[in-house]
Amino acid sequence: MRYWPLLLALPMALAIGGTAQAVVRVHIDLSAQRMYVVSSSGSYVWPVSTARRGYRTPRGSFAAKSLQRLHYSSKYDNAPMPHSIFFSGGYAIHGTYATRSLGRPVSHGCVRLSPGHAAMLYDMVRREGARISISGGR
């Protein structure tokens, strides 16, 4: 009987010490050209632009590897990539000023979002981390 207080305290200790940290879940559907986001601040669905014909956006599951508030592409004429979230090599989710193209595959492989949505996602991922999944096709 003297172990009951310990047994009762164990679940509470695990609950306090083992609390899972929120992680932003990002899913990109290449077929629909949509991004689905679930975070502690809410759920969102945003249009994106991914790889056009002749290029590819990698499919699979990824972690956010690095974040850069403003990155310039060394490969594509120093093009600005605001609120970049790199997830695989040189591939990133980032803002674009070509918002009329959102919802269609037009990029060289990155996942483009409107500047406002990119800033929101960047802040969520900076606070919570992220798991990114990409699936679908043309």
Rank of each mutant, 00 (worst) to 15 (best):
M1C: 03
R2S: 06
Y3V: 02
P5Q: 02
P5D: 01
L10Y: 01
P11I: 11
A13M: 07
A13L: 12
A15W: 02
I16K: 11
G18A: 10
G18L: 10
G18V: 04
A20N: 07
Q21M: 00
Q21V: 00
A22H: 04
A22L: 00
V24A: 03
R25P: 01
R25W: 03
V26N: 06
H27F: 15
I28V: 15
L30F: 06
L30N: 05
S31Q: 11
A32Q: 05
A32F: 06
Q33T: 06
R34H: 14
V37F: 02
V38Q: 09
S39H: 03
S41F: 14
Y44A: 07
Y44H: 07
W46L: 06
V48E: 05
S49L: 04
T50L: 12
T50F: 12
T50V: 13
R52T: 01
Y55G: 08
Y55Q: 09
R56C: 05
T57H: 01
F62D: 07
A64D: 13
L67M: 02
R69N: 05
L70M: 03
H71C: 02
S73D: 15
K75D: 15
K75V: 15
K75E: 15
Y76G: 05
Y76Q: 05
D77A: 07
A79K: 10
A79I: 09
A79N: 07
M81R: 04
M81I: 07
H83K: 07
S84Q: 02
I85P: 01
F87K: 05
F87C: 09
F87G: 05
G89D: 09
A92Q: 04
I93V: 01
Y97N: 06
A98V: 03
T99H: 11
T99W: 13
S101F: 14
S101L: 12
L102F: 08
G103V: 14
G103Y: 13
R104Q: 11
P105E: 12
G109M: 15
G109C: 15
V111H: 12
V111T: 14
R112G: 01
S114D: 08
G116N: 12
H117S: 05
M120S: 13
Y122L: 04
D123G: 07
D123F: 10
M124D: 06
M124F: 06
R126Y: 11
R127W: 02
R131K: 10
R131S: 08
R131N: 09
I132Q: 03
I132G: 01
S135Q: 13
S135F: 14
G136I: 03
G136N: 02
R138T: 09
